[in-house]
Design a protein around this nucleic acid. Sequence first.
DNA 1: CTGAAAGCGCTTACAG
DNA 2: CTGAAAGCGCTTACAG
Lengths: 333, 333
Amino acid sequence: MSDVARAAGVSLGTVSNALNKPEIVSDRTRERVQAAIEKLGFVRNDAARSLAAGSSRTIGLVLTDVGNSLFVDIARGAEQAATEAGHALLLANSDVDFKKQESYLDIFDEARVAGILLAPLDASLEGVDRVRSHGRRIVLVNYAGDRADCCSVLVDEEHGGYLAAKHLIDLGRRRLVFAGGPENLRAVNDRRRGARRAVAEEAGRVSLEIVIGRSLNSPEGRRIAGDLASRGRSHLPDGIIAPSDQLAAGMIHELTAVYGLRVPQDVAVIGYDNNQFATEGAIPLSTIGQPGHEMGRVATKLLLEEAAESTGHEHRVLMLEPNLIARQSTVGR
Amino acid sequence: MSDVARAAGVSLGTVSNALNKPEIVSDRTRERVQAAIEKLGFVRNDAARSLAAGSSRTIGLVLTDVGNSLFVDIARGAEQAATEAGHALLLANSDVDFKKQESYLDIFDEARVAGILLAPLDASLEGVDRVRSHGRRIVLVNYAGDRADCCSVLVDEEHGGYLAAKHLIDLGRRRLVFAGGPENLRAVNDRRRGARRAVAEEAGRVSLEIVIGRSLNSPEGRRIAGDLASRGRSHLPDGIIAPSDQLAAGMIHELTAVYGLRVPQDVAVIGYDNNQFATEGAIPLSTIGQPGHEMGRVATKLLLEEAAESTGHEHRVLMLEPNLIARQSTVGR
DNA sequence: CTGAAAGCGCTTACAG
DNA sequence: CTGAAAGCGCTTACAG
């Protein structure tokens, strides 16, 4: 930068101002600085910048799983909001590994990032305490726990479950099953509860059976569907709510290819998450869409707001609504 | 850090050594420093570290599309290799946007990262020249162009196309179609060429028709399959090679659900990429798998090697092999 | 609006 | 093995 100053015939501080507060520098000076920068191919050293300024202009996003399209949408939304505010967004993938999550929090902490967005695992949040105790700002995304000391953005999972069940009921289905998902996953529990509420509203005209499962993947879906189908046709449900699209896809496969049932004529199936492959299968999947992009945007804005309000910041919890996406697996073609 | 030095009763330089070259410091001193760090909750300032040391210990990976599982695998492999070498890996998603790609290259350049991995768009690489001219090391991942001045890692796409066609031929299919994919996409061209070679080896016993398409997505697959099927049953191919899994999934949907054909009995279909949803559909998809994880690992190693060989580095191009994954859409159950 | 100077928190020879 | 000191390249009051 001192080379640039020399070439432009101004002082170091003026170059810095031309770069960071252009409105404060005269047009002529700014142009000369700009010309010198281009001639010399100068690249500002962000490490020095961060050191002198006390923090960097990048925002760190720690994701649980980059393979999951919800998190990818969150990243896209966060990136958009960050860019609009003149910040860069860097991602770190904790890959469902608590140690990695901790490690990346520390890395962003050491890098003195402007703030951290964390989509955390359903586990301890000690890293959050550690990082916050150093004064680093952090916003939780898609974390359902109670943290009065952080801003957070999450989705109303209960309402998502309600929407899914209500959709099947509105289509005339009367014997529903909420099929699969581990007992202890908070999000799945909430969805289950929402489904129960929708059924309860029908005052006995609709039944809901709960099947607890182990995981949320496709083989598990096949297994569960196999169990249901082998009860015999007369005991079959006419509507299935699955708490993930993988689960739903596996079920549809088993029901149609192995047991010769028709989806949705014999059984309507609705998934959850609106994953990419929900539209790629032979029977496009009805599902509950999560507002991932919006979550990322809003979380970033909360983070930047918190940074701006140097004093007396009040932490907020924003709850966004999921939405029903009806496709062939419930409504037919 | 000076607080730590004071608390431990040693000098600043010794604290730094205890952190960075622990083997050079006596056990007693190291323990005292460690204790002071924990007592004070000290977090090393990485900006200061990078500034003083001349470069940081993070590696930047610029990805074309985090929604694509190939790139996610690359990221996982790169992360593993980086972590093993004591580096952190930070991701940036260019989201198939050339401007973003350029911008993230500059951001990593400004951050003085230890090196950059770039999975570039099929576009100009001017950003690469710019960044390299500043002395920053960069390794290209999954870029098929010619760059004698960079290390790069790529996959033998021609061989992938060959494997796909050869697989269908070995299953007894004789009237093949390579269906879809734009004419000008380098990777698709290579796959097409590979398929031609496999057919040429059969000396006329197998035919191969080429259908050029617009995109690689699922609706396009439906459209193409519709065209093929409406020719009438006797003119139908008995094997289809699709240059993407989305395309293949769309085709299978159209062939089975709309035209009542059986896959693979009437037509065998093979896709490309081994995307996540390849196993989630009603008919699990045969496909060509890309060694994404390995690509990420190898690319990171090349990058670190280049950084280690301060002088006389020779750029290398590593070509990895794809592999055939046979599932129900070609071999049946 | 511009310049001179202090300081951000580390690393790294260098001397001991 | 340890300490004192210079320097990395910026930003930011402060004077002018």
